[in-house]
Amino acid sequence: MIKIGLTGWGDHDSLYGGITKSSEKLSVYAGHFPTVEIDSTFYAVQPLRNMEKWAYDTPDSFSFVVKAYQGMTGHQRGDGNPFSTREEMFDAFLTSLDPLQKSGKLAMVLCQFPPWFECKKENVQYLRYCKEYLNDVPCALEFRHQSWFAPEFKEQTLSFMEKEKWIHSICDEPQAGARSIPFVLDTAGNDDVLFRFHGRNVAGWNKPANGQEWRDVRYLYEYNQQELEDLAGKVKKAYQSAKNVYVLFNNNSGGHAAGNAKTMIDILGLDYKGLAPRQLDLFD
């Protein structure tokens, strides 16, 4: 199955018809898309009550991609980590997944590593540690340093993913130097594969020299029809070898993700059953 969705559900104003309560947005979102990435888990390990509510607010067939906590992937530096040991941190994160696992709604955990996580021996060893600790939880692996797919390491990286049973997070993103990765269309021998479409804003990908807040511009991009058709063709190709293909649009700095995702659904001719009921507006 091909499941298309967005990263997060709170910022897609075009979906909500004037709804402003954040507590109501996920149930509305689930009337449009069958999957979503939880990005709040990157900033803090979520309490069980949040995960329980999110599972309750979505249909039986809905699925979540849960972004790994930043302390687990090395984004967090200094004294910001509230956990006293690495094991405590991983255990707390695993416990937080229980409601999604019990409801059958956990698609995978996304481990996205930072731009300074280069292809070198100690980092390979840390990836092994993460995969071993997360055990049977399906895990996707996404890099932000191009060394992993440099000519001398590309095949080894993909072979490592296959051997360690990592789901490949295939990214479409600006080609903006060492802090970006190429589009590598390979399912790494897994039944599941993840696509994340970050946009192609080359100028905004790396922090601007003028001090402009980079988060506001990094994902500022709207895919045009031809680009979406090209990407849809790659999604279909991956679906020839993978049983489950997840596609997440992350180009939402300007609010373009939801529209682009719906266009791709149309291009692929997908018709999702079991979405949450939608309230028709005046023009539906």
Rank of each mutant, 00 (worst) to 15 (best):
E155P: 11
N81L: 06
D284E: 06
I267D: 04
S84G: 09
V235D: 12
N123I: 01
T7P: 04
Q70T: 02
G259Q: 08
N206V: 05
E24M: 09
E155F: 12
D11R: 14
V65E: 01
H198S: 08
K53I: 02
D186P: 07
F83W: 14
Y219R: 10
Y43T: 04
V65G: 01
L134M: 15
T263S: 07
L248S: 05
Q101G: 14
Y219C: 09
L158A: 05
K163F: 10
T85C: 02
F93V: 11
A232L: 07
G74V: 00
A258V: 03
Q76T: 09
K237Q: 14
I181K: 01
D266A: 14
F249Q: 11
R86D: 03
Y246L: 13
E229F: 06
E87P: 08
L280C: 02
N123W: 12
T35S: 12
G233I: 05
L94A: 14
L185W: 11
N206C: 04
E173D: 08
V65C: 07
R128H: 13
T41C: 04
A242N: 06
D98M: 09
D136Y: 12
L185D: 15
M1F: 02
L231E: 06
A92N: 14
Y219G: 03
K105L: 00
T35Q: 09
F90I: 15
D60M: 06
S241P: 07
L282W: 11
L6C: 06
N244K: 14
E88D: 15
S241C: 08
G5T: 10
M89P: 09
P138M: 04
K3T: 03
T157I: 09
R144W: 10
A203S: 11
L6W: 02
M72G: 00
G80Q: 11
D192G: 01
G199W: 04
L26S: 06
E173N: 09
L228Q: 14
Y221W: 14
L275W: 00
L280K: 13
G259V: 05
E88F: 09
F283C: 01
D266N: 15
K237G: 05
A178D: 08
A92R: 12
G31V: 04
A178C: 00
S14M: 11
K163N: 13
Y239A: 15
L185G: 08
D281T: 02
L248D: 01
E229P: 06
A140S: 11
K105F: 05
Q225E: 15
F62T: 00
A44G: 01
E88Y: 12
Q240W: 06
W205P: 03
N190D: 12
F83A: 02
V28F: 10
I4N: 04
M108S: 11
L231S: 07
L141M: 12
